[in-house]
Design a protein around this nucleic acid. Structure first.
Lengths: 151, 151
DNA sequence: CTTCCTGGTTGCATAGTACAACTCGGGCGG
DNA sequence: CCGCCCGAGTTGTACTATGCAACCAGGAAG
């Protein structure tokens, strides 16, 4: 096996290992927020408010799943639903001030953790690693197996 | 923000994104095998048989979780339990021929997927990416957040 | 108005997991 | 040998995240 093929094996193994551990820790990213909630909140921050259906489509989640997550986030007062005057079926989701604050906290805490973790990497390696990850994830349908999800 | 800090942000974002998608697809790695089952089977293959407790310790899973996974794998005839003549409390787990076959199938299918996905990467990049991943995962307690798991 | 589409909720089922209580066998000190 | 504690595994219970299907309500086209 040549070095390239060997490298592919290693990439596969390491990605699998990462996926497994990530799965185990996704629920306790933060006492307040699961990985999915964090992602949804982040999306709301970026988009400045959107519909539940948009979230479902964007993250390939079932609308029922999003509905429940949204309910939980609303119960926790991190987001609020605003009726859409244009279309009464729609609820536009917005971060509350609390939501923005918690999101910022978690983001900051994760940022610190990542910085610490990558502290002794040379800048050149960081940049290359970042570029590789982007390239890897850009491949349509990033999954553990490397194959696109069904749907 | 300097380029290194920017790269750390990107790494965080991409790892998060990968983790989320991996989580979503972990259950349907293969019709036969979840990501966890696949990992356990792989460990049995490598180790040539071990105890359920060893699996639990190695993967930081509860022994009850492993016990149920093992039951399922045994029901599917992918592994078998052999009594340990040395210690009657112990069941040494071994792959069956079917288990070896399925494991090989899944491994092959994933290998193909990864090869395809990484097909147009220069060998040099593959090697560096592999090395970065190893270095990243080697950091004690690989999680999504970058922080070690509680326990 | 009737029909169809769309956004969202809810009931039901499932997977994966942890924790705790329990059983059973093994190893030791007396 | 006996009593005790420990370690391997199992089982009961509960919880989370999830998907699918059925459903409801608002909107749009005829």
């Amino acid at each position: 096996m040549d070095a390239g093929a060997e490298a592919v094996e290693t990439i596969q193994r390491e990605m699998t290992s990462f996926a497994r551990r990530a799965r185990a820790s996704a629920g306790r990213l933060h006492p307040e927020l699961s990985l999915v909630s964090y992602t949804l909140l982040g999306h709301l921050e970026e988009s400045g408010g959107c519909r539940a259906t948009d979230l479902a489509a964007h993250y390939a989640l079932d609308k029922s799943t999003v509905s429940r997550q949204v309910s939980a986030l609303e119960r926790a007062a991190l987001i609020e639903r605003r009726p859409d005057p244009e279309d009464h079926r729609v609820q536009v989701l917005h971060l509350t001030d609390t939501g923005r604050r918690i999101l910022a906290q978690v983001t900051e805490s994760r940022r610190t953790a990542f910085r610490e973790r990558l502290a002794d990497w040379p800048a050149e390696d960081l940049e290359r690693f970042a570029e590789y990850l982007v390239r890897y994830n850009a491949w349509a349908g990033t999954t553990v197996s490397g194959r696109p999800p069904r749907r």
